[in-house]
Design a protein around this nucleic acid. Structure first.
Lengths: 227, 227
DNA sequence: AAGAAGCATTATGTATACATTTCGCTTCTA
DNA sequence: TAGAAGCGAAATGTATACATAATGCTTCTT
């Protein structure tokens, strides 16, 4: 397999940025771990993984290193495995998440652009247009909109990158725990309360409402988690 | 340079674990960054770094990937540089640190072994033995003892690993900001208050005392930081 | 003289070769 | 039959070869 390497290709005046093989490997493995195609504990042999993904061992190694730093892969001795995920792991994940999200909410309340959160609040309050079908994915969309707005408002680089790692883990947890429409509704209400607190610049209540939301969320996850 | 590879060597019934070249590279680069031998913004070319450290590019690449995940190296496009460190970076680092340390203190107060923190408190209270010289490094030693005790008591894996990354960054900041003996004394008093709070199981006060300590610490760092 | 174009050097990204260890299987022995 | 020892296959760790892109310098043109 010669001559397939090189990170980018220039064609005329346009530059077509070919993604690096290590990025492809990282993205694919990450998605497969989140989607439980690769289950917790699965052994990630370099050679086997390289052949499966279709690149050589070098970019696989880099991808595995990155995933290990992100917490999705654990390296026990010489071998890399998909990070285990027990109830204890989930609980500890939420302990980190609580630390990060409450701080992010507090900073967001301190620095937010009120316009931005007024708009977001309107989106939360707006139901489906008349005659339009209810989009079951809308709560998830709104939730990620909120995450993005908080990240932007909090404007704290290190906090943000720590949160990104945690969200990757959360995606994996959420994929496996069954979503409950009753819980989904209540979660949306909790999100609205957080948006309101940030909008009004109430740091304390923003962090408290976030803490409450996370406790409820953890309880729901643990309840619906078949582990 | 052939035949120098291989991760471990078995000799008789003892196994002498040879460290991997990537670990050596990681450790050396990390220390050099923390000690400001490699200053913020320094370009870390793979070839040059490999020759300097004395290994090939492969382990250097892994070390750089790890350092990037840890936040000590920034990768802007294709090139890796030692992570910049402005006042803004320091402030944002403390925003993350506040989130993590207050949570760790809270969890530690919840789960601590009272004996452990009673012992630690005694160590804090004990002055130098009669006739013994005052050890100027003692405050730093006590501080890291406290960190270890909190990590152990909090018993939360993800939180701990996030804290480890932050502490690496902090070591770099601390190395550059001048230590002030007046501040050092007050910091020790603040530490004692944290130990007391955790010892008595007072979660709220443990996190509050930690927050206060971090604010004071940040103020001191910013004051003595020649950036 | 200033700017653009082209070429050479150098760096990164990837693949692969090779040394060594580890792990599993077989076989031998008590 | 159980356990240990030895052998072989496979995997990891490292070095290096090679392809391509980026960078800087020279040169040509207007």
């Amino acid at each position: 397999m010669r001559g397939v390497n090189g990170p980018a290709r220039a064609t005329g005046r346009f530059r077509i940025a070919l993604v690096r093989a290590s990025d492809v490997a990282y993205g694919q493995l990450r998605q497969e771990i989140i989607d439980w195609v690769l289950k917790p504990g699965t052994l990630l042999g370099e050679i086997e993984t390289a052949e499966r993904v279709g690149v050589s061992r070098t970019p696989i190694r880099e991808a595995l290193t990155r995933l290990a730093a992100e917490g999705l892969v654990t390296t026990s001795g010489r071998t890399a495995i998909v990070a285990p995920l027990s109830r204890k792991h989930v609980i500890e994940l939420f302990e980190l998440r609580e630390a990060l999200e409450t701080q992010a909410a507090r900073l967001a309340a301190r620095r937010r652009d009120p316009e931005r959160f007024a708009t977001l609040l309107a989106e939360f309050r707006r139901g489906p247009d008349p005659g339009e079908a209810v989009d079951p994915r809308r709560p998830y969309f709104l939730s990620s909109e909120l995450d993005a707005a908080i990240d932007e408002a909090a404007d704290s680089q290190y906090l943000r990158s720590a949160l990104e790692d945690v969200r990757g883990q959360m995606a994996r947890v959420r994929f496996y725990s069954r979503s409950n429409s009753e819980r989904l509704h209540r979660a949306t209400l909790e999100h609205m309360q957080i948006v309101e607190a940030i909008h009004s610049g109430d740091e304390l209540f923003a962090s408290q409402a976030t803490a409450v939301h996370l406790r409820n969320s953890l309880a729901n996850v643990l309840e619906s988690l078949p582990l």
